[in-house]
């Protein structure tokens, strides 16, 4: 029986694709971004995280679940998906790190007519992407930095694979929304924005979710004992967000802020 390692299931997710959704968070990620919002999703195996506010004591993050168990959770909210044009979103971590499990759940959703979205870094072997892609209705595709050296520095991996995979998805006619985390001083420069616009225009991608960086990761980093390399970087001010929004919109991109 195929099992997956899941670290959270969120109902009434309304920022992870169309309609009312259930978001399944799969544990394990090949990247370790400096600004990661879900650092507890990075390691592939269940782990202990120190207690949060209110001192609830350490908690275990992540649990093994069968396809049937995950489907049972997904199916609980069928009526909400029906009414809202919603469905299920797989997020993480990086869901493509658990391809067998992911494929099994996606196939079940496809059989039941449940809309699926994959929130992915895209950093996966091409064959895995090719195997998963036909089972997915919508890709929420992270695009962080186009400069490979920068990408290596801030995420720990090269962007070769994810760019190639993105081209492949576009070529095969998959529906893609770009998710762009806006990190002050790192990827909000006009130079980088220009490169990104150029790249996306070439691919014919128009839809972007702008995700302004937030410093809530910091507490979780601390609880997990991870180093915090961003220091006290402040979230982007409203005027910076507006500037980037206007910049992208001017060139014909369809933007939402905050997914």
């Amino acid at each position: 029986m195929t099992q997956g390692t899941i670290f959270d299931i969120k109902k009434f997710a309304i920022h992870d694709g169309p309609g009312i959704r259930t978001t399944i968070f799969l544990k394990g990620c090949p990247m370790n971004c400096w600004w990661c919002h879900n650092p507890e999703g990075q390691r592939p195996e269940p782990e202990s995280m120190a207690g949060g506010p209110g001192d609830t004591g350490p908690i275990t993050v992540g649990a093994l679940m069968s396809v049937g168990q995950v489907m049972a959770e997904i199916e609980k909210d069928l009526l909400f998906y029906d009414e809202s044009g919603g469905g299920v979103t797989f997020s993480g971590g990086e869901p493509l790190l658990q391809p067998d499990f992911l494929a099994a759940v996606l196939a079940q959703c496809r059989r039941q007519g449940i809309h699926t979205a994959l929130d992915t870094t895209g950093h996966a072997p091409a064959d895995i992407m090719a195997r998963i892609a036909p089972l997915v209705d919508l890709f929420l595709y992270d695009l962080k930095l186009l400069d490979d050296a920068h990408h290596r520095k801030y995420t720990g991996v090269s962007n070769d694979r994810l760019l190639a995979n993105l081209r492949h998805l576009v070529r095969t006619g998959r529906e893609v929304i770009i998710r762009f985390p806006l990190i002050p001083h790192i990827n909000d420069t006009s130079d980088h924005l220009g490169k990104m616009k150029h790249f996306l225009q070439e691919l014919g991608l128009r839809r972007i979710d702008l995700l302004p960086y937030h410093d809530i990761h910091r507490q979780k980093f601390h609880r997990l004992g991870h180093p915090d390399r961003l220091g006290d970087l402040a979230p982007p001010e409203a005027d910076v967000i507006d500037r980037v929004k206007a910049d992208l919109a001017r060139d014909g991109f369809a933007l939402t802020v905050g997914g």
Binding site: H15, G52, P53, G54, L211, P212, I216, R218, G258, G259
Partner: peptide, 12 residues
């Protein structure tokens, strides 16, 4: 919170 929703008491 910011692009997503969470339980208030769970926040820093």
């Amino acid at each position: 919170v910011a692009g997503y929703s969470d339980y208030f008491v769970d926040l820093t």
